[in-house]
Design a binder for these strands. Structure first.
Lengths: 222, 222
DNA sequence: TGAACAGCTTGACGGTAATCAAACCTGGAG
DNA sequence: CTCCAGGTTTGATTACCGTCAAGCTGTTCA
């Protein structure tokens, strides 16, 4: 099964392609720490295969998942550009194949091909707006609504999602990680799934079957 | 009273200074819409005086305040760079003086002074991480804790904030807008303030007096 | 001076998620 | 096959916030 590159997070091969194609590929097993919170950010990553989560350690010790990336995504770029340290820790959730891009290489590339600068800026702009969108979701949407929003994203990751009608897809993450992403305790993720049952949605063994996707869209306000 | 430029959001005069100094200054009265959600983003703004809020209109009609900017801040830059439309509406909350930067001018500036590119990227990177920080706050912190976090920011805006000890400062925004920013209904902002009363904090007439700032820091986890 | 208004406060109520705790799978190791 | 550990589900309880509604206060304007 060939994974699709999600269009929203895609690294736009036409932009970064020439740059990354000259870099060596690294393979890491699940559980590998790629970088840790507070470490100097001198590189960013392009994920070719696998899955990586970015999280912060809250004072109470619970880990707070900020983002989860799949094949085709890049991460660590804003931190690298800001010339400071990583604000999060990056860990491979599954065995992953990725490309490590060091700052010096990127800066040299920008210097050599200045016509690419506007494209890189546009890339960063889009990334920023995605974040803004996430923030709005946390402000406005209830936890259940956020779950529906997440389910729509997860569904889109494995194929096109119709406006309405039945749909079935596999959850890309274990439930407790979904909880971390949408800010919901694992127990309540479970309860939210059960609640969805009364709306024509069944979840079992990581498979989601919805009688009508419109339920998700309405809940998530999309 | 001279307003301080908040270091975190500051536009870094040394970077943008030469660029903005050649642009005309615009004055607008309170309530002016600078740009609206969905409009093509062909410019960004540098705020010299006044206050501007960025908000989205939720389906139910309630406005969701995403960010509020003061003197020295810039906004609309990521949207402009992303080559798309503004994801939010920008409105002057108070009479404001600002500089409008059009995309063509910025791109020409980048072309002419390529050595500024890394600095602009760093600026965007920092902005992105601020957003990440906000997002974490919404995931991890309770509404009350978010209020304390906001109060710390507000205090920092009007002067240095000690690690502990008494502090008094003026709220830069009316209560209902604070609610919009931290995602709390106005009634509950009031209740949260009253709750703070039992922790040595009094709020009246837009003035906050805290017996010990450490209360805020502890609540906000900083 | 009084009316009108907006912003803030207070009250009551219901729904919902956090929390603590325990039971229940399910897959892997021995 | 059994045991074990992680992840998931369920239950009971509590606290909190959203909501609707009514009162309050200071300001503006006639």
């Amino acid at each position: 099964m060939s994974r699709r590159v999600s269009p929203a997070e895609g690294f736009h091969l036409d932009l970064l392609g020439p740059l990354i194609s000259e870099q060596p590929v690294t393979d890491v097993p699940a559980g590998t720490l790629l970088f840790t919170q507070g470490e100097e950010a001198d590189r960013f990553f392009v994920l070719l295969e696998g899955r990586v989560k970015l999280y912060t350690a809250s004072p109470s010790g619970a880990e707070n998942i900020m983002q989860v990336f799949g094949p085709g995504d890049f991460f660590g770029l804003p931190a690298m550009l800001s010339l400071k340290s990583y604000p999060v820790t990056g860990e491979a959730v599954a065995a992953s194949r990725l490309i490590v891009m060091h700052r010096a290489v990127v800066l040299e590339w920008l210097r050599a091909t200045p016509d690419q600068v506007p494209h890189l800026l546009a890339l960063l702009g889009r990334r920023y707006e995605r974040m803004l969108d996430s923030l709005a979701a946390f402000k406005v949407l209830s936890p259940r609504a956020r779950l529906c929003r997440y389910l729509l994203e997860a569904a889109a990751e494995s194929g096109p999602v119709p406006d309405a009608g039945p749909l079935s897809f596999a959850l890309p993450l274990p439930a407790h990680m979904i909880g971390g992403r949408i800010g919901l305790a694992p127990e309540n993720v479970s309860r939210a799934f059960r609640w969805l049952g009364s709306h024509g949605v069944s979840v079992s063994r990581g498979m989601v079957k919805a009688a009508d996707v419109a339920v998700f869209r309405q809940m998530a306000g999309r």
